[in-house]
Design a protein around this nucleic acid. Sequence first.
DNA 1: CTGTTAGCGCCTTCAT
DNA 2: ATGAAGGCGCTAACAG
Lengths: 329, 329
Amino acid sequence: MAATIKDIARLAGVSPATVSRVLANKTAFYGPATAQKVQAAALKLGYRKNTAAAELVTQRSNVIAVVVNSVKTNFSSQIITGIQDTAAAHGLNVIIVYAGIVDPEAQRKALLTVIERPVMGILLLSINLTPENLALLQGAQTPYCFLSIAFDDGDLPSIASDDWQVGYEATQTLLKAGHRKIGLAAVDSDSHTGRFRLAGYESALRDAGVTPQADWVQPGVYSYAAGREAMAAYGATSGLTGVVAGSDMAAIGVLNQSRDLGLRVPNDLSIVSIDGTEMCELVQPQLTSVSQNFYDMGAAGVRQLLEPDKQSQQVTPIRVVDRQTVRVL
Amino acid sequence: MAATIKDIARLAGVSPATVSRVLANKTAFYGPATAQKVQAAALKLGYRKNTAAAELVTQRSNVIAVVVNSVKTNFSSQIITGIQDTAAAHGLNVIIVYAGIVDPEAQRKALLTVIERPVMGILLLSINLTPENLALLQGAQTPYCFLSIAFDDGDLPSIASDDWQVGYEATQTLLKAGHRKIGLAAVDSDSHTGRFRLAGYESALRDAGVTPQADWVQPGVYSYAAGREAMAAYGATSGLTGVVAGSDMAAIGVLNQSRDLGLRVPNDLSIVSIDGTEMCELVQPQLTSVSQNFYDMGAAGVRQLLEPDKQSQQVTPIRVVDRQTVRVL
DNA sequence: CTGTTAGCGCCTTCAT
DNA sequence: ATGAAGGCGCTAACAG
């Protein structure tokens, strides 16, 4: 059995309440003499506080839970770092749980492990909840905030980039370099994110006097495989001179598939990636990207949890980072 | 306030004990009629069990905690998937907490958030604890197991590849291809892992009749930057025809730095990477690697937690995967 | 400054 | 098949 404050109390010859006080550093409520005794006893017994018990009585917790949709994503590490740093600055602890990317049952289980214990807030990274699971989340009396994902329904608190703008600027980067026939690869057509990026892409095209063509867009789930498939679908003779890819991984898929098709990047094909993670600088040529500020998303998420009443739909800025995959025509 | 079993009891007109029983599915102890009433009431109140309270009384938990050393690593995702799947198969939940890679204080805080609440076991991914923090961990009455890291001290439960063998086989892969002057890059010289890989590397060299040279090894912390630095230290004219890199990220660093030095891979320089994550197939040329079985490490870790008395030092098999960075001389 | 008392939400004998 | 009672480890009044 682990030692409890009662054990300490007995050993130190004081009451449990006193032990609780010195262990909680309520300095106004005990003298130095007892403090000594108590701390010595605690040390000798190898005492570890049972936080669950403490949280049960105080009705509050200092842990924030992060629900992540899949182990595969790599941008999540930046968001998590932002969360971690900001949480630490506020004396908060962070725990992470993985939910399946689509499986509603896995999603539900992840939510439950988080909801069924005392957490002060929940951050959901790029998670698309089923209506049932959303109800579950809202039923819990816990502040929450979606990160890196936005909704048509304006009531859900979220922090994300402006997806329309992302699509627009990515496309414009190519347009400015003189490209006219531009593809959009591995962006999904179901989600808010995908639809807005598509809309931004089309607007940019139209603003430049280019009429979007249906076969220029090859939807997909933002993965490496989706990028490869999209590029394979275009083929070597599509006439496209530029492609906007839905994520860094997708961009690498496009890049590698281009190579397999005998296309050189950026000579034969220019690529603009969306996300701007470290991946962009690991591959050759380095990917020009519309970079999101994931770190700030995480940081803002924590702050949002701290003041749940504030403005709920936040937008983080993006910027285009020119590297090596856009050729000026 | 969230609803409690008392609220349900009142609404359903039964006692809290009965509510507890039907909610826990103790089917032998209640009739279908009451079950109906209770479940209806629970649903209406949006009841969520307070797991912390339940764990407080039952003195056990079904969550296993994973401590990860940094957000940057990418092999951890495979281990976590292995953990996740195996845990789910046993009805266990998984939470993850990040500890700083070296900062002892961050390490300590991560450990505490995990130790100070009821978890049935702790898995530590590639974590090197300070003696104090190790004592802390051992002081907690919780089973634990280190993953992807081994120790000279044979008493600590751990599951990892045989690092000597990793070093040996990586080097041998190059040797077999006819290389003689072979570097070892971005392996640290302090840890068990690093020292054993180094020893394996030297043994392979000697077994092939090659005398290791001091300037063939450029230690580092397994990172992309370390890989780049190691290669930069070798320079373009080292005479090395092959390099073993300490991790996939390090290998990519070596690869990119080689390119900057004007060396073509594998024509001028062959590379064998250690880890074998998906990264190997994303870069060009694809990295030949000594691949570790991270998924199984995670799975075995969960099993180890379940039977803490069994054999404590386990080794998972490795295999070399030939891709495109080793040229046969 | 310190001890006593009560109770957080839940589970579990022990009766009935 | 169900209720009453006690207690898990801790903290928060309330007395003193």
